[in-house]
């Protein structure tokens, strides 16, 4: 990767991990992760402490919580940098928007996926997932989160500059994330690797498409 792109990746990761206020490392992602854990914690309260029931639905709950947590940071993925003029300045330097969006997807994934997979461990314990179930959840998250990151950045680029864009972004992400959710959470029920593979495939399609769709949206918004 060339020097400018590396500098942009460094900035993107730092901005997403530290938040726009440039706080401590992790403060930018703390809220979605705490939200994810909070959903896992209140769920047993809502359906009761039956370990068999929890063990059966626990994997699905983790997936839904992960999806909701991935939606939380959408409004600060792309829009602030368009408003501040960063995308215009990059364009003046001949840096293609496709590359910028691809870098941002990578940065978004780096900032939330490892933390989410780590938080899935205590969440899995709270929901009484067994070792096998937890392994499938972690593998599924590994395969599915790149797609969620790509989807998040793409939708954030499309809704940047719209009034009420954040709420609209959440609404757009959920239906498009359904394939990842079906195969990722479905792998838990079937217990096979085929679900993970399909989840990864759906994820890769999104990763491949998102830079072009996102770049088109950024250019059209000028």
């Amino acid at each position: 990767m060339s020097q400018p792109l590396l500098a942009i990746l460094r900035r993107d990761v730092s901005r997403l991990l530290r938040g726009s206020q440039h706080g401590a490392w992790g403060s930018g992602i703390a809220l979605p992760i705490l939200f994810f854990l909070a959903v896992a914690i209140i769920f047993p309260f809502a359906i009761g402490p039956d370990p068999r029931l929890l063990g059966r639905v626990g994997g699905g709950v983790i997936w839904v919580a992960a999806l909701l947590a991935a939606i939380l940071p959408l409004d600060r993925l792309v829009e602030p940098d368009i408003e501040a003029g960063f995308f215009d300045q990059w364009a003046l330097r001949g840096i293609a928007e496709e590359g910028l969006i691809a870098i941002r997807i990578l940065a978004h994934w780096l900032s939330f996926a490892p933390a989410l997979m780590l938080a899935a461990l205590p969440a899995g314990a709270l929901l009484g997932l067994g070792g096998d179930g937890l392994r499938m959840v972690e593998l599924g998250l590994l395969a599915g989160t790149p797609g969620l990151a790509a989807l998040g950045v793409m939708v954030a680029a499309i809704t940047a500059g719209l009034k009420g864009g954040a709420a609209l972004a959440g609404l757009l992400v959920i239906p498009l994330a359904v394939p990842i959710l079906i195969f990722g959470a479905g792998a838990l029920a079937s217990g096979g690797a085929s679900g993970i593979a399909l989840c990864g495939a759906a994820s890769l399609v999104l990763v491949a498409l998102a830079p072009f769709a996102g770049a088109g949206a950024v250019r059209a918004g000028r």
Binding site: P4, L6, I8, A84, Q89, R93
Partner: peptide, 29 residues
């Protein structure tokens, strides 16, 4: 030759000290 533009948006990270915010562009340029 290359083109530079100055408009009403500084394109500098608001939370960063000015030196670091400018250093980001120095890494690129």
């Amino acid at each position: 030759g290359s083109v530079a533009m100055l408009d009403e948006r500084p394109a500098l990270d608001m939370a960063l000290p000015l030196g670091e915010a400018l250093a980001f562009w120095r890494d690129i340029d």
